[in-house]
Amino acid sequence: MSPSFSEATRARFERMLARYPDKEAAILPTLHLAQREFGHLSGEAIDYVATLLGFTPARIEGVATFYTMYNRKPVGKYHLQVCRNLSCSLMGAEHLIEHMSRKLGIKPGGTTADGTFTLSTVECLGSCGTAPVMQVNDDYHEDLTEESIDAILDGLRQEHG
């Protein structure tokens, strides 16, 4: 079945669209809405956004694949995005990524079998003062250590049940 926005998202979309004189400019925010709504941007979701905005699906695909923060593949319930840019790396990010990989049994880019976690490495999250940093869904976790990571992951797992 082809996806479509819920009524609430549809309303948000309409309000958002009215702010852009040019529909092309609304592609990015619409893709964000779609990603929130559908979890990831499947081919069907791209097609849906294309129809919604009146572009070819190729145009939307081009935009969606250019930006790294749009997920073209399904991600776990918690998307762990660990910064590996300069400051975080100096503060041991690479080591933390290895630790998480071992703990979760997945490589960066992978998702745990139960669909709880996806581990990604990302570029600067703009919080160098509190490096190393990771973003879990919409939340930042700062000044990470192996111990704090264990606590975060265990907490999330419990929450997930």
Binding site: G43, I46, D47, F55, T56, P57, A58, R59, E61, G62, T65, F66
Partner: peptide, 22 residues
Amino acid sequence: GTGELEFFQRGDHSEISIFPGR
């Protein structure tokens, strides 16, 4: 005016292609 081809991906992975199935 049919716009079937686009750039996909970025950097040295950039390529032109059609949207799958179109």
